[in-house]
């Protein structure tokens, strides 16, 4: 396996595979769904979510603002991403994704050999309702289903609620630390 990040020795999980349904803390029915493809309608639904996203909650420059820049960003990374969304009444209200950490398309053939960067965003009106945890676990469950073993992320070092959430599912801080805290999880071989 390529890459230089340290990963935990012990695998985390198991995690639930999408599709799952939950009732959030506000009594809303939320479906956690894996996207088979990330183009056309499914991509547009996610673009629509990011258009609604409050820029105050951006992290490290993403999501971009403005519909065109949002679409350009998602289209640029869409091809080999793994995507899970939270839907309420058909609308996407949360989006979690894994982006392969390689410039070599052929390397995607064996997802267990490469590292995947994780990001997750939940619309402000749906935060603090338990959706983020379910969405994150659903993404990791789906990742295991498709053979992904190593996932990493960066989070702003002062974002304690997010760091606590990542730790709860099994992410551990790696050695690298500056304005961003890097974290990694091992999903098993």
């Amino acid at each position: 396996m390529s890459g230089t990040r340290p990963y935990p020795d012990e695998p985390s999980g198991p995690f639930p595979s999408p599709t799952t349904t939950l009732e959030d803390r506000d009594g809303r029915q939320i479906d956690i769904v894996a996207l088979d493809s990330f183009a056309d309608e499914s991509l547009e639904d996610v673009v629509e979510m990011y258009v609604q996203f409050d820029p105050e909650d951006r992290a490290q420059g993403i999501p971009p603002t403005g519909e065109q820049r949002i679409r350009d960003w998602l289209e640029a990374i869409a091809e080999n991403t793994v995507n899970v969304v939270a839907r309420h009444d058909g609308d996407v209200v949360g989006h979690a994704m894994l982006v392969p950490d390689t410039g070599d398309p052929a390397a995607i053939d064996d997802p267990g050999d490469i590292e995947w960067e994780l990001a997750i965003f939940v619309l402000q009106a749906y935060q603090r309702a338990g959706i983020g945890t379910e969405l994150l676990e659903g993404l990791l469950g789906h990742a295991i289903d498709v053979g992904i073993e190593r996932v990493w992320l960066t989070v702003e070092r002062w974002n304690n609620p997010a760091i606590a959430l990542y730790e709860r599912v099994g992410f551990e801080a790696t050695g690298t630390e500056s304005f961003e805290q890097e974290m990694a999880i091992f999903l098993g071989e």
């Binding site: 992290a59 490290q60 420059g61 993403i62 960003w73 640029a76 990374i77 994704m97 982006v99 392969p100 950490d101 390689t102 960067e117 990001a119 960066t154 690298t176 630390e177 500056s178 304005f179 961003e180």
Partner: peptide, 14 residues
């Protein structure tokens, strides 16, 4: 920029 497009500032910058 990370693969995702996140801006990353390293320890030297900090």
């Amino acid at each position: 920029l990370s693969p995702m497009g996140k801006i990353q500032l390293g320890p030297i910058t900090e």
